[in-house]
Design a protein around this nucleic acid. Structure first.
Lengths: 204, 204
DNA sequence: TTCGTCATGTAATGGGTTACATGATTAC
DNA sequence: GTAATCATGTAACCCATTACATGACGAA
């Protein structure tokens, strides 16, 4: 459990959430599953080890209420909650994770998590992530369509049904991405023209 | 690598494909990725160990061309291809896998694979799988909608965008399932009335 | 006082990937 | 003869899960 490096969707998600506000583990999981419930659900069995390991790497710090034992808050929450806060190193690492492509097998799951934290992501990185996702989906579409054309008429109706449903779903997501990319580009254009009074080309 | 029990989507997929026709590993993977390319892609690093293990469990048998060495087919395919064939036990196990629910974490990935082999699946099992999938999706919809209602107006526009896209995708799949379930029911009704001249209840 | 939920954790296991290593066959 | 693809395999590791275990707290 948690050997050495341990990047992963969960790590990204935890850092991303903690970037918003300090939290304890239990709440973290709730928010996670509310945020990403459509795509996946994490369990405590993976969350707590992950937190432990992030702690060991100095990316987050913990605040255990017992440690300030003499503080004397007799009523109101003498809890064993452990609140985690993102450190500067953690923020740095989060940006790296958001930016990096990741080892290809995630890409799929990673996209949803990255997207969820777009409001904390640089505009150019956002655009790159969206375009990366789109081109991956388009590759997949092309290869599946090719496979479908090769074996046409030799597949049963259920297989065909599945292929078509899949194809349509992916096409739908591509259209969605196109819209988002369009919006992002428009915003960037707008920002560019408002940031400089003279809207002339700067290089490219 | 391939410890003891080793059920999994891959095993199901391999048995399912082999149920159609005997094949060697390489082709198996190609077909797999053509069939399920929309959802996932398996690698040789998992396929071959899986085959080995299925072999050890007696669910498939291999045909190594070297073993019939004196057969003397000088021209035409003196290959090192190893063709695997499903055994009777394998077919039995396949039916079990198609029928069983599986340990909840698959359900998601398992559905696509199960669906891909619907033409080899009993009609009542098909219906159960479709309805199971639908009710799981509906549960998810409900919980996500609840979470969305709880935190409404406190989430940024990107998160909202993601939630909505996810919601719509799942809703779309539910509609698809509804249509399929309708068709299945209609076929069952038709089969029932054609199989027996007198359409009276037989027990259940 | 018991029950549900909040809250934190550990051990064993699981199913799959990446990266590597090798060789045969086909096409040019 | 050499490059691409077909074909088979192994070792190391990865990320997360299930199942279990524990305990505090609030409400009935």
């Amino acid at each position: 459990m948690a050997g050495k490096k341990g990047a992963g969707v969960l790590e990204l998600a935890v850092l991303g959430l903690l970037n918003g506000a300090p939290m304890h583990g239990y709440e973290l999981r709730k928010r996670l599953n509310a945020l990403l419930g459509m795509f996946r659900a994490f369990s405590y069995g993976s969350l707590y080890p992950c937190l432990k390991q992030l702690l060991a790497r100095g990316l987050i710090v913990e605040d255990r209420p017992e440690e300030r034992e003499s503080a004397a808050l007799p009523l109101q929450s003498r809890r064993s909650k452990i609140v985690y806060t993102l450190t500067a190193e953690g923020k740095e690492h989060l940006q790296e994770l958001l930016t990096e492509a990741g080892p290809a097998s995630w890409e799929d799951e990673g996209f949803g998590v990255r997207f969820a934290f777009f409001s904390h992501t640089r505009a150019d990185v956002r655009l790159r992530i969206l375009e990366g996702r789109r081109s991956r989906l388009e590759e997949r579409l092309e290869s599946v369509r090719a496979a479908l054309a090769r074996t046409r008429e030799r597949v049963d109706s259920y297989t065909l049904e599945l292929q078509n449903h899949g194809l349509e779903s992916v096409e739908r997501e591509v259209r969605w991405l196109n819209e988002l990319i369009g919006r992002e580009r428009a915003e960037q254009e707008q920002a560019k023209t408002t940031n400089q009074d003279m809207p002339r080309d700067t290089g490219r």
